[in-house]
Amino acid sequence: MMSIPCSVYIVTLNCGAWLEATLNSVRDFAEVIILDSGSTDTTYAIAQSFPNVRISHQDWQGYAGQKSLALAQCQYDWVLNLDGDEVLSPELKKEIEQTIQANQIDALITPINDVFLGVPNSKHTKKHAKVRFFRKSKGHYDLENKVHENVIVDGQSVRAEGDIYHYGESSIFVKVEKNNQYSELKAQEKFQKGKSPSILKLICIMPLMFVKSYFFRRNFLNGWRGFVGSMINAFYAFLKEAKLFEKRSYNKRDSKY
């Protein structure tokens, strides 16, 4: 069987719990580039057991910076980005093969199916989607984005049918911890760009985001997990605005001295 002429690039840090499933899902791809930022678990041993994988160390450069460096190592015209806790679905793999063969578009916008507390979303839940598969020559990252980095594509993108399964939110503790970290980075990014916080947004953002997540994105179809996840998503939105207020407050206080 011929390998799929596409480079997969992944940035990792202690992803041993999921990495074997991740790499099994892309074992038919021509090459897999892993840029690791200091794993102390089984990440290296797992990576080195796959013949199409090349793993190397890179001190952490931020999400967009790290992925840009991994992307630069890719040798093929088509590239696919996965995180170390994500698995490519067979349906999306087939779409990728068909897209390469047809050679008519420049990217696929891929739905991300969050497997929260070990259970995938209902097929009727509205999923977040990002460009994860694209022509290397047509895509790049905005290095000013500290978190939720997106590939910017100069060309035609089409939404894919198949999913990428995201397994990292394995517990409420992990999801809350990630949101605390991400909200700090996002608030810092907004502060550095000179954005001002809003008291109206601070008051309204949490109930509005809960309604968006639970009803509009149809997380109510995921039972109690959907309710808990929507509450955490709403609190994440609140944290970003609250931390922007915090940073402005500290900045004003420091400027007095």
Rank of each mutant, 00 (worst) to 15 (best):
V131Y: 04
R132A: 08
F134D: 01
F134Y: 14
K136V: 01
S137T: 15
S137Y: 04
K138F: 02
G139P: 02
G139D: 04
G139V: 04
H140A: 06
H140F: 09
D142A: 10
D142T: 12
L143P: 05
L143H: 09
L143C: 03
E144K: 13
E144V: 00
E144R: 12
N145T: 11
V147F: 11
H148T: 00
H148N: 08
E149R: 06
N150A: 09
N150M: 06
V151C: 08
V151D: 02
V151N: 02
V151E: 03
I152A: 04
I152V: 11
I152E: 10
I152M: 06
V153I: 15
D154E: 14
D154G: 04
D154P: 06
Q156K: 14
V158A: 11
A160F: 10
A160N: 05
G162F: 09
G162E: 11
I164W: 01
Y165G: 00
Y165H: 14
H166A: 05
H166N: 13
Y167N: 07
Y167A: 00
E169L: 11
E169V: 00
S171F: 02
I172E: 07
F173L: 06
V174G: 01
V174H: 04
V174D: 03
V174N: 10
K175V: 10
K175E: 12
K175C: 05
E177Q: 13
E177F: 04
K178C: 01
K178E: 09
K178H: 12
K178I: 07
N179A: 00
N180P: 00
N180A: 06
N180I: 14
S183D: 01
S183P: 09
E184C: 07
L185K: 15
K186W: 05
K186S: 07
A187W: 11
A187F: 10
A187P: 08
Q188F: 02
Q188R: 15
E189R: 11
E189F: 09
E189H: 09
E189V: 03
K190S: 06
K190I: 00
F191A: 07
F191G: 02
Q192K: 12
Q192I: 10
Q192S: 11
K193W: 11
K193N: 11
K195Y: 08
K195P: 00
K195S: 02
S196K: 13
S196D: 06
S196C: 01
P197W: 09
S198K: 10
S198A: 09
I199V: 13
I199H: 08
I199S: 12
L200V: 12
K201Q: 14
L202V: 03
L202M: 14
I203M: 15
C204E: 04
C204L: 15
M206A: 14
P207N: 09
P207K: 05
P207I: 06
L208M: 12
L208W: 07
L208F: 07
L208R: 12
L208G: 01
M209L: 00
M209T: 14
V211E: 02
V211G: 03
K212M: 02
K212L: 08
S213I: 04
S213W: 03
Y214T: 05
Y214H: 08
F215R: 01
F215W: 14
F215Y: 13
F216H: 07
F216N: 05
F216K: 12
R217H: 12
R218Q: 14
R218D: 02
N219F: 10
N219I: 00
F220E: 00
